[in-house]
Design a protein around this nucleic acid. Structure first.
Lengths: 245, 245
DNA sequence: GAGTGGTCTAGACCACTCA
DNA sequence: GAGTGGTCTAGACCACTCA
């Protein structure tokens, strides 16, 4: 394989290799947690030097699709093996460490999607979605009331049992049972007067200021795979964020 | 220069080079916007191969301390040249693009720092700080009331004139006038009932839910150089965030 | 056309893992 | 000790910038 600098959509070799590796990830040739072939194997398979494979793999490792381990090999990233286990959970106690996290499922329904949700999820009108509502507790304190919308075509046969088994490891569940790894999320955050539903669920005063977080989560290929709207009690907790210039 | 694999604090060569380059940045040998020597020059200066310099420079470019431009050279990053000009301003209109941003300085005082601020800024007790309050407007709509605390030892001779000159480009001002580049910030976000001061300043109803953002900004070497507490009206705006798993 | 960063190769040696 | 990823070199050729 050689670069073709004159072609209109010229990509350097290592990007082309990266794309080929990504395809194998998407197709499931290697599943989450599996080792991928060694750099030398990939180099001979794609007929390029080890250095070029390294560059492709390095970018995928930076994007956290792959995980390298010196002496052992390179593995498909998985929520199960993550160290900082909840990169998507930003709610933190004002004082002290984040402690036991638990979740209670309120209900799970399958219904025809509203147009806004379908648009965000990239579904055609009339498609059905799963809607689930739950409460999150930190150290037994209810702090978050949320409603989650999932495209039913990607979550065939989702049941409350499955959700309850995984409690507060939903993204591991998406990955393990449905092969959907959440890579990235965008959030819009506001301060609002709590709707009655949320205030009651969290045992908070009526219309108390709460943090409203609307999230769209994305999987491989930038496809939206989850919508989430949560109301958060920030009297003794805060949303933590880091900005890199 | 050769690696010393047996030494207790072994660092690969390219990390050592990276450290040397960082030192030149901190010392101001090359200022924001300046070009640094070419890779080949650095390679011969440090007596290593171009590849090793590249790896050091690449990491610094990823961390956004340097900016590479093919064919031109490598430059010290600067807030002035940034494309996405306000990476630290996350407040965005719910509908439409972010439009004209303006700021009004309410007052600027120099005072003895309270103990909490001094601790966060890493100052000894009794040190003095600047405190400035201002209002930010998006499309002429007042949306943010904030109080900023700066260590006076790093901001010698700060005046309201200087602040007003730079309006909503404070971080460019820190960099241009005081050689302090903001690299990173940590924020804690809550929903609170607006204090009277903020409600009045933004023309909002008393005790309306507002987004409270407490920020600590960091410069080279992970040193805190600014504290900021802002109250944000999120009736028609939201705080935008992206999370990478 | 001289100089810059960007890509790619081939090969050496290293630290680490695991049987 | 065989196999992995990690570092480092030297050298080639490329695309891009600027005078």
């Amino acid at each position: 394989m050689k670069p073709a600098p004159d072609s209109p959509a010229f990509q350097p070799l290592y990007r082309q290799i990266k794309e080929l590796i990504t395809q194998s990830l998407v197709s499931g040739e290697w599943g989450p947690g599996d080792p991928i072939p060694s750099e030398l194997e990939l180099a001979s398979r794609f007929n390029v030097s080890q250095g070029t494979v390294r560059k492709a793999v390095s970018e995928l490792a930076e994007e956290k699709l792959l995980v390298r381990q010196q002496g052992r090999g390179t593995f498909v990233a998985s929520h199960a093996q993550e160290r900082s286990q909840f990169p998507f959970l930003r709610l933190t106690p004002d004082a002290g460490q984040r402690s036991e996290l638990s979740a209670t499922l309120l209900d799970l329904r399958r219904m025809r999607g509203d147009s806004a949700s379908l648009r965000l999820l990239g579904l055609s009108s009339g498609s059905s979605i799963y809607v689930l509502r739950r409460i999150l507790r930190l150290s037994d304190k209810p702090v978050c009331y949320e409603e989650i919308r999932l495209p039913s075509n990607r979550f065939h046969g989702l049941t409350s049992q499955v959700v309850e088994q995984h409690e507060c490891m939903l993204y591991s569940m998406y990955e393990g049972r449905f092969g959907l790894r959440v890579l990235r999320a965008e959030e819009r955050i506001k301060a609002v007067a709590a709707p009655d539903e949320a205030a009651v669920a969290l045992g908070a005063p009526k219309a108390m200021p709460m943090l409203l977080i609307e999230r769209v989560a994305f999987t491989y290929g930038g496809e939206a795979c989850e919508l989430r709207r949560s109301y958060n009690d920030t009297r003794q907790h805060h949303y933590w964020n880091q900005i890199n210039g």
